[in-house]
């Protein structure tokens, strides 16, 4: 019996890295949305910036989801 430490290490590094990155980016998107809602009483500045930030972050997350579906569905390979 041999333990494949390299593969195990890879799974760990990739899993932790991807999870933290996705959640961090998504959190920034959610924060952007919160700024849009919070900025209504103020001038347009934070609202537009918030919207742009949210759109960018959610787009990045959507790309990751699309890649996830690509990995799950064998017909795409």
């Amino acid at each position: 019996m041999s333990i494949d430490w390299t593969a195990l290490g890879q799974v760990t590094a990739v899993s932790v890295g991807v999870t933290v990155a996705v959640v961090a980016v998504f959190t920034l998107g959610v924060l952007g949305l919160a700024r849009v809602e919070g900025g209504r009483a103020e001038p347009a500045g934070p609202s537009v910036a918030g919207r742009a930030q949210a759109a960018l972050c959610f787009l990045a997350c959507a790309a990751v989801v699309a890649y996830g579906i690509y990995l799950i569905v064998p017909q795409f390979h």
Partner: peptide, 24 residues
């Protein structure tokens, strides 16, 4: 992975308004 991600998510959103954050 979930521990670090959760910690960061709460750290980032600590000062934001909680309702839109939870909804998002």
């Amino acid at each position: 992975a979930a521990l670090i991600a959760t910690y960061l998510a709460y750290r980032f959103t600590a000062r934001a308004r909680q309702k839109p954050v939870a909804e998002g």
